[in-house]
Amino acid sequence: MPANQTMQSNPIQRLVRWRGIRARTILDMVGPFFGLLLVIALFSIDPAIRESFLSGGNMKLILTQAAVVATSALGMTMIIVSGGIDLSVGSVIALTSVVTAKLLVGGYSATTAVVVTALTGGMVGLVNGTIIAGFRMMPFIVTLGMMGIARGAAKWLANNQAVYAPDSAVNQLMAKGSVNQFFPLPIGVWVMVILAAVMSVVMTRTVFGRHLFAIGSNEATARLCGIRVQPYKVVIYSAAGLFFGLSGLMQFSRLTMGDPTVAKGLELDVIAAVVIGGASLGGGTGSILGSIIGALIMAVLRNGASQMGWGNYTQEIIIGGVIILAVGLDKLRHPKKE
């Protein structure tokens, strides 16, 4: 019978089907989560650093470090699931952190600074999305160009040097408080967690989310089914830009200054987080929870490596290896069918 012939699946897949959609989602989640536990366990082996590595204070540090990448990863997940890519993240973070600093230097209130910074990110995304949708251009090329433009704009705005801002409520966003305890966590971490929860529901349970997956899975089908693909793209890149702006705000808050040279190459960390989390660059797959865990895995690796006293280059090599390993394992979990 035809139905039987198509069922030569591995045991994992059979298990996944057992309870339908939900069991599958859980299993997809378990993969990256297991990876996170594994890297934490690996750094706990060495008794010399175990205590300080596993301390509440260090865990808080990891979360604070991960927040910037994780917040951007929320936007990037939307983009990658819909079949696109955005290389301008790092530059947008630099630009928006400078914008925050300039506004505070100019005497504007913290609220104004927060709103305008996020909107700046959104505007850059709007420009990206409009060009991509309007001229049917490759997202890779458009955002590669924007990477240069935003970086240049940041340097221009900052007069090519760090902008020191007066103390304000924005600095509280990523303030760690007590160094030795896990709680209280910085507000920025909570903001990221709440946004992740909201985005997770949006991606998996709403019509908007389904349409996003549909566009990434097969744009022609999405169009056939009446989804207005091009306007969707404008919305997706703009919304993602808001998240990047928020990351810029967090970046500013961590350094308490606007630095136009900050976050160089961060776009690759963000993309890597999303991919480690189970998304495919071809579009149509990915999840918010996965991307957050991906961002955490990278933060744990960075933190653990520096606690071990490994050099910068070792970190880079390890993280590069982890990205390839994660995607390789993912291929094993979901063997491509003919």
Partner: peptide, 24 residues
């Protein structure tokens, strides 16, 4: 569509999503 693999269907999505895509 005459081309169900390239245009007609979302091959990596579920049957349920494919059936209900135009009317949620």
């Amino acid at each position: 569509s005459e081309n169900r693999k390239e245009e007609g269907l979302l091959l990596n999505r579920s049957i349920a999503d494919n059936l209900t895509l135009t009317r949620f």
